[in-house]
Simulated assay, not measured.
Amino acid sequence: MENSTDEELIGLIRISDYAAFDELHRRYWPSLRRLAYRKTGDQADAYDLVQELFIDLWEKRETLAFGAQLNGWLHNRLWFKLSAYYRTKGFQQKHLENIRLNLEQVSNAPQLDPLEILAEQKNYDQLLEVVNHTIQEMPDRMREIFLLNRNEQKTVVEISKKLGISPKTARKQLDRAMGKLRRSTQQYKTSAMELLFITWLISN
């Protein structure tokens, strides 16, 4: 099984060959779990998300359209799991802190490209482009405040001290920045949490 191509494994899985499924699981589990951990900051949640992904794959093996690139397909499925995860849990402070610490530990790992889970999704590719463009088009001070908050997780008070402005001004600029992002992505029907998730994905 180790020498089988992804396409061969898929063919065998479709006819309920569990050995092929086990090989697929062995081949992709480690990278998917590392990616899930990087994006959740929680080992248990990362395990559960990837486990659910493989359970879905086995249960729906006869009808799933895997596409040409299995790696991209699996990461695309993980994207939807992560999106649902954040819709349910939101950006709790403990997640942000765990993610920040984890990013420091694995930031040099080349296999953890934060955009790879979106590679097969044209809609999200377009959304990312819109978000990036909107951030770049923000006034300089607004963009600086927004990125300090989103990229470095600095609080309003910390930003105000760093830039020598009042907390009220920092908060107002953050609110305006999020307003710009919501308006520019309105057609994609993203929730506030999903939008935060998208901006976090592209900033790390």
Rank of each mutant, 00 (worst) to 15 (best):
R26P: 05
Y85E: 04
I202H: 01
L12C: 06
L82W: 06
N108G: 13
I117K: 06
Q92I: 13
M138K: 05
P167F: 03
Q93M: 12
Q121T: 14
N132M: 10
P139Q: 03
Q173D: 07
D42I: 08
V157G: 09
G179L: 09
K81L: 05
L112Y: 02
F54C: 02
Y18D: 08
L49A: 02
E116H: 13
K168W: 09
D140G: 03
T88Y: 07
R77T: 02
Q186G: 05
R176F: 08
M193N: 13
Q173A: 07
L147S: 06
M1F: 10
N98Y: 02
Q51Y: 14
V130Y: 02
S191D: 11
E97K: 10
G90K: 03
I99F: 02
I165R: 00
H95M: 09
A170F: 01
T199G: 00
V130G: 03
I10A: 06
V156M: 04
E120T: 15
K161L: 09
V130A: 07
G164Y: 09
F146A: 01
L174Y: 07
L196K: 12
E120K: 09
G164N: 11
E116Q: 15
N123D: 14
L9D: 04
L35D: 01
A68E: 15
G67N: 09
R26E: 12
S107I: 09
T134C: 10
V131G: 00
E2K: 11
G164V: 10
N76H: 12
